[in-house]
Design a protein around this nucleic acid. Sequence first.
DNA 1: TTGCACACGTTATAGCATAACGCAATTGAT
DNA 2: ATCAATTGCGTTATGCTATAACGTGTGCAA
Lengths: 132, 132
Amino acid sequence: MTTPQLTKNQSLVFEVLEKAEGPLSAYTILDKLRDHGFRAPLQVYRALEKLLEYGVVHRLESINSFVACAHPGDNCHSHGIVAFAICESCGQVMEFHDHEVDHRLMGWVRGQNFKPEKTTIEIRGLCEACAA
Amino acid sequence: MTTPQLTKNQSLVFEVLEKAEGPLSAYTILDKLRDHGFRAPLQVYRALEKLLEYGVVHRLESINSFVACAHPGDNCHSHGIVAFAICESCGQVMEFHDHEVDHRLMGWVRGQNFKPEKTTIEIRGLCEACAA
DNA sequence: TTGCACACGTTATAGCATAACGCAATTGAT
DNA sequence: ATCAATTGCGTTATGCTATAACGTGTGCAA
Ligand SMILES: [Zn+2]
Ligand SMILES: [Zn+2]
Ligand SMILES: [Zn+2]
Ligand SMILES: [Zn+2]
């Protein structure tokens, strides 16, 4: 999937996520964009929907939040499954790919004739700084 | 973690999950237990909290639902990371463990000096029956 | 011109989860 | 036996997350 020109709202939401230190909830994004005319959650969710589709933003299911892709330029969709390490103390997120993990998981589901669409891997814990 | 005697509410919630075909949301559980005196979400959430702690129930982060552990007798906590394949059509859930996946993920985070606490692996897609 | 696709704005509603209070039963010292 | 601490429970209220439903405007192709 190639990323088309972003609309105004999509650009605003994406910029907020890019500048953020860590993942943000949709409502936090909304608050940060009220000065730019955002008034309702749907404005955020509709932009996020497209940004997710384009692969430039990821959704963190375990914390109901969104984060800009850590691999600008690349398209994460082409890297297989994306995994995240999420610090529960400071909120920092590390994003990585592991083809061996992909291979094992996809091998298992294929053995069950299960047809995978979307895979979530999220590791919550403490980052190096916060664990010290 | 050994599983202590369940309280009344914990037993009721667990029985509902055991009998269910697939994962249930907390509010669905609540509705199924209204005839047994349940009136408020907290009664469900408090029971779930313990059942999750005991490892007899799992939470599916990507669909905000809960499911009874598929390995009664075993304690899933001792099996390392648990992975789920969730059918988006019929709701059926398959639970499995893969030590190689655990090993790769834990290896990666240790390389970052990240201290993992809880890991989520959820594959959404279509089960064999629904994909046909 | 007409029809369609798409982004957008607004209001309302649905769905998920926890805070805060108080009460009762249990347990385990003292 | 008494006291304190813990745990479970019930209730009300609130907060957070997400979508439904309706209407508007714009650009473009048939
Ligand atoms: Zn990415
Ligand atoms: Zn941290
Ligand atoms: Zn299990
Ligand atoms: Zn199915």
